[in-house]
């Protein structure tokens, strides 16, 4: 919380909303530059023909394939299959994660029971579970979604629990003195006080799920999905299509994690001064 900043009495912090859109534009441009450099280097390597063109396509060719896949709808089919798996898995995973984290933060017993389990499971890459899940659930959606749930739930539970445990005790005392107890204390004080940490957990959980999704699709999917499509394209040496998928994965992942969460956070924890705006 930004309460250590000294300001003269009667003086409000100037609203920075006006300059915000300008800042976004300039940060977009400065973020674009490294990608331009990368593109130039890529093209140079292609021109030098270190790899045969079929293994390392030019950006023009990648864009052509992108355009073709966009127009004939295959890109959207793959993207749609992936995103719907992600949403289902992430929704279930975050419900489990937030629920578990809240219970752990409130009950000493639950904390003692689950904390060692979480600590043991956290370092295991979710990818490691996929072959096992495929054996249990068969190839297809179930195995992939199970991995996503797993990937999402762990960091979300961990961060939610931390958020509840580190909720400012002075706020809880203040509420207590105003006769706030039980469920009201939980909903009106502890939950909002831990919201910044819960969002951090959701952010991590979502980017982990996105990775788990692509990996899961490579090993378990049967017909559609970005991960599946990359693996499938390998069979035809379609490196241009593979690159289209890879770039799509990166871009959509960025959109979901940064833009969506940036928006939600801007209207809650950033507005409340509980979190500094990222990249501002």
């Amino acid at each position: 919380m930004a309460q250590d900043v000294y300001m003269a009495e009667e003086e409000l912090t100037p609203s920075e909303t006006k300059s915000a859109s300008k800042a976004v534009a300039s940060s977009f441009l400065s973020n674009l530059f490294p990608f331009l450099v990368l593109a130039v280097v890529w093209e140079a390597v292609v021109k030098m023909q270190i790899f045969p063109p079929v293994l390392m396509p030019s950006l023009g060719r990648v864009f052509e394939t992108f355009w073709k896949m966009l127009l004939n709808g295959t890109l959207f089919m793959h993207l749609g299959a992936s995103v719907s798996r992600l949403l289902v898995g992430f929704a279930i995973g975050s419900a489990i994660g937030i629920g578990l984290g809240l219970v752990m933060g409130q009950s000493r017993f639950a904390e003692k029971f689950f904390q060692p389990l979480l600590s043991a499971l956290m370092p295991i890459p979710s990818l490691a579970w996929i072959p096992l899940f495929v054996l249990w659930f068969g190839l297809g959606n179930t195995a992939t979604i199970a991995v996503i749930i797993f990937a999402a739930a762990l960091p979300i539970a961990f961060n939610t629990w931390t958020g509840v445990k580190t909720a400012n005790p002075v706020l809880i005392r203040a509420a207590h003195s105003m006769k706030c107890r039980g469920a009201k204390m939980f909903l009106k004080v502890i939950l909002p006080a831990s919201l910044a940490m819960i969002f951090t957990g959701l952010r991590i959980g979502l980017s982990q799920s996105w990775r788990a999704l692509v990996a899961g699709e490579m090993l378990a999917a049967t017909s559609w999905g970005l991960g599946f499509a990359i693996f499938d394209a390998r069979e035809f040496l379609a490196t241009d299509a593979m690159l289209v998928m890879v770039i799509t994965i990166g871009f959509v992942g960025f959109l979901i994690v940064s833009v969506l969460f940036g928006f939600v956070e801007k209207h809650t924890v950033v507005k409340w001064g509980m979190l500094q705006e990222v990249g501002a």
Binding site: M1, A174, K179
Partner: peptide, 20 residues
């Protein structure tokens, strides 16, 4: 340490005890 709820406006902070 102030102890105001950061997610409530000045008015909503004052209203908290009354709502309780």
């Amino acid at each position: 340490e102030y102890a105001l709820f950061p997610w409530r406006t000045a008015l909503e902070n004052i209203a908290f005890g009354l709502e309780m």
